[in-house]
Nucleic acid binder design. Structure first.
Lengths: 140, 140
DNA sequence: ATCCATGCAAAGTGTTTGCAGGTGG
DNA sequence: CCACCTGCAAACACTTTGCATGGAT
C-alpha cells in the first residue's frame, strides 16, 4: 500500500479512489482474483466503478511493477502435443516457449508450505528469461 | 501419430483428414502454436479447413489425453499483487492457486538443456495437484 | 446406409478503445 | 484551472455453438 502510493507519486500518476481501492483489494487477498472478481468486491465501496477501469488500473500497475499476472498475459491459448513430463523455458520478451527435460526437476520434493495446501502430483518448472534471439546480437 | 490413431479408434471416433493433419502438425512442432497458427499451417494441405474445427479437434484431443495446453485453460486472466519471488500450488480440479515460498526452489540451477535456450533470470515452480477441498472428505 | 464430423455463420466471453464529462493536483 | 481519469458504450479478439451438408465406417 505504501509502495503503491509511492510509485504512483513517483510517476506523476494521480491517486484516485479507484486506483487505491483496487490495489488495496488485490493486495488484501491471496487467491489471485480475476478482473471481474476485483470489480465486484471494490464495487461495494465504489458503486459507480466500471469494469474497464479495473482493467486499465491493473495493467497500469503491471507496468509499474506493482502487480503481476498468473500465466502468460494477453495471449491466445497455446497447445502442446508433448505429453512426456517436461518443463518450460519461456522468453519474457517474445513469449517463446520451449520444452526441456530434467530428471532432477521431475523429482523435486514439495516443501512443507506447499504440502499444507494439498496433495501434489506433478512438478512443472518454468524458467523465465531471454531467449537467444531476444538477448542476442541485435538491439533490444 | 500411432498413439493418435490408436486412441481415436479405441474411442470409436472417426479418423478424418482434419483430425490426423491437425495432430500431425502439432506433434511436428515444438513451439506450442495457438489454434490459429495450427489452422494456417494445416490449411495449406486442407484449404477448406475451418478454424472452429481446429478448436473442436484440439479440445477433443485434450479430453483423450493426446494434447495439453500451456497455462491455465479457458480461464479469465488472474492477477497477483505479491511481487516477492514465490511459487504456486495449483489445484487441477478447481483451479485454486496459492502462493508459497521456498528458498530451495528460488536457487534451483537451470540444466544445460535449458541454458541452451536462453539466459535464465527467474525460476517459477508450479506444483499441480488436488487442494484440500477437492481431495477432501466429500465425493470425488 | 447410418451417424458422426465439418463448414459456415452467428453468438458468447473476456478485454480494449474513443469520447465527453468529472476530479485530483 | 488544467490535464488526467473515469464511466459509458461500442468495438475487438478469441473461442464456442446451432444447423445443414458431406464423409467415414
Amino acid at each position: 500500500m505504501e509502495r503503491c502510493r509511492r510509485l504512483l507519486k513517483q510517476h506523476g500518476i494521480k491517486q484516485t479512489q479507484q486506483r487505491l481501492q483496487i490495489f488495496h483489494e488485490l493486495a488484501g487477498r491471496s487467491d489471485h482474483p480475476s478482473a471481474e472478481e476485483v470489480y465486484h468486491s471494490v464495487r461495494q465501496r465504489i458503486p459507480a466503478l466500471a469494469l474497464d477501469t479495473v482493467y486499465r488500473t491493473l495493467w497500469l500497475m503491471i507496468d509499474l511493477g506493482l502487480v503481476s499476472t498468473l500465466g502468460p498475459s494477453r495471449e491466445p491459448m497455446r497447445f502442446d502435443a508433448n505429453m512426456d513430463l517436461h518443463h518450460h523455458f519461456i522468453c519474457t520478451a517474445c513469449g517463446m516457449a520451449r520444452d526441456f527435460y530434467s530428471a532432477e526437476y521431475n523429482q523435486l520434493a514439495a516443501p512443507r508450505a506447499a504440502r499444507a495446501l494439498g496433495q501434489v502430483s506433478r512438478v512443472q518448472v518454468g524458467l523465465l528469461g531471454l531467449c537467444a534471439k531476444c538477448s542476442g546480437p541485435a538491439d533490444h
